[in-house]
Computed example of a mutant assay.
Amino acid sequence: MGVIASVPAGQAPTVQVVVEAGTVPAGTPYTVTGHASGGYEWPVRAGARTSDGTQAVLGDPICPINTPVTYRATWDGGQAVSAAVRRPWSGYSLLTNITGNGAVDLLWQGDDARETDPRVTLHEVPGRPTPVAVFAPAMGAGTVSLTARTTPSDTAAMLALAARPAAAALFHNPARCWQCRWGTCDVPLVTIMALTSVSHARSPRLDVAERIWTLKGAVISVPEPGVAVPTSTWDDLDAAGLAWAQIPGVAGTWNGFDRVLWQEAGA
């Protein structure tokens, strides 16, 4: 019994997180979170639940790239932790939609410009030299701005992602950051945002059609955090090329069926 994290083959795949049957006592509320170096922590989608004693299979499309991560199931009086895994990405920086699709390999330039939102209003009172400040209960997460470069295939992917009315995930790449190697970087490993401004133009580069993008986004929480993200789809099962009679031999039980990475189960 415990927590098992698996990374499917490919570039920046959705990480599979399994809380095995019997790990959390039935009827007990628990949460599943991811953890990376530097104290970075994030909730796994659909990871806040009440145990029914059976296994839970979750997909994590916002796991950081190229850095060791562990997953932890925590409940009142106990916890279980997975072995460390690493989500690979061989490109530069990465931008995807919130479910891990539509990957864009981009060269992230600039200085991680961010603007906070104090959520304070000032009210002038006649006869009083200072205004009355009214603060919201919580400060806003603010915005992030960046300049990025793409070449043709990723330019098309960026246009498609920008045209989709959905949240996006921007991934910092520790494998290409010398400050990360020294343990001195302060750029968030993952930023969830809603794109609010997208502009682009051709760069002066001559050997390839390169575009320079100016992006701005509002930092937001993960939409619909209670909705689970699958690590395999029916299309993955179809692509495996297995006859129905062969599937029980691969999956064994229905619990096993949920845990098979069908994109790796080809005949």
Rank of each mutant, 00 (worst) to 15 (best):
I4C: 08
I4H: 08
S6L: 06
P8L: 00
V15Q: 01
Q16N: 01
V17N: 01
V18C: 02
V18D: 01
E20P: 03
P25G: 03
A26P: 00
G27V: 00
P29L: 00
P29N: 06
P29T: 00
Y30K: 02
T33L: 15
H35F: 10
G38I: 02
Y40R: 07
E41G: 06
E41S: 13
P43D: 08
G47H: 00
R49N: 03
T54W: 03
Q55N: 03
Q55S: 11
A56D: 10
A56C: 03
L58W: 06
P61S: 10
I62G: 00
T67K: 04
P68A: 01
P68K: 07
Y71K: 01
W75F: 00
V81E: 08
S82I: 06
A83C: 03
R86L: 05
W89F: 10
S90A: 11
Y92R: 11
Y92N: 05
S93E: 00
S93L: 01
I98W: 06
N101D: 15
V104K: 06
L106M: 07
L106Y: 09
L107R: 01
Q109Y: 05
Q109L: 10
G110W: 02
D112G: 07
E115H: 10
R119Y: 07
L122E: 15
H123G: 05
E124S: 06
E124N: 13
T130I: 12
T130V: 11
P131N: 15
A133I: 07
A133K: 14
V134G: 09
A136F: 09
A138F: 10
G140Q: 02
A141F: 08
G142W: 04
T147I: 03
A148F: 04
A148H: 02
T151F: 11
T151A: 13
P152W: 11
P152S: 08
D154N: 14
L159K: 10
A162G: 07
A162N: 13
A163Y: 12
A166T: 13
A168K: 12
A169V: 15
N173Y: 05
N173P: 11
R176W: 05
C177S: 05
W178T: 14
Q179D: 14
C180P: 08
R181W: 13
W182P: 13
G183Q: 09
G183P: 07
T184C: 07
P188I: 04
T191G: 10
M193I: 14
T196N: 08
T196S: 12
S197W: 13
V198K: 07
V198D: 13
H200K: 14
D207G: 08
A209Q: 13
A209K: 15
E210A: 13
I212Q: 15
T214I: 08
L215K: 03
I220C: 03
V222Q: 05
P223F: 01
P225S: 02
G226C: 00
V227D: 08
V229W: 02
P230D: 09
P230N: 11
T231A: 09
T231P: 05
S232V: 09
T233S: 13
T233A: 13
W234A: 10
D238R: 11
A243G: 15
A243I: 14
Q246F: 04
I247V: 10
I247L: 12
V250E: 06
V250D: 05
T253L: 09
W254R: 10
F257I: 03
G266A: 10
G266M: 09
G266D: 07
G266W: 08
A267M: 12
A267V: 14
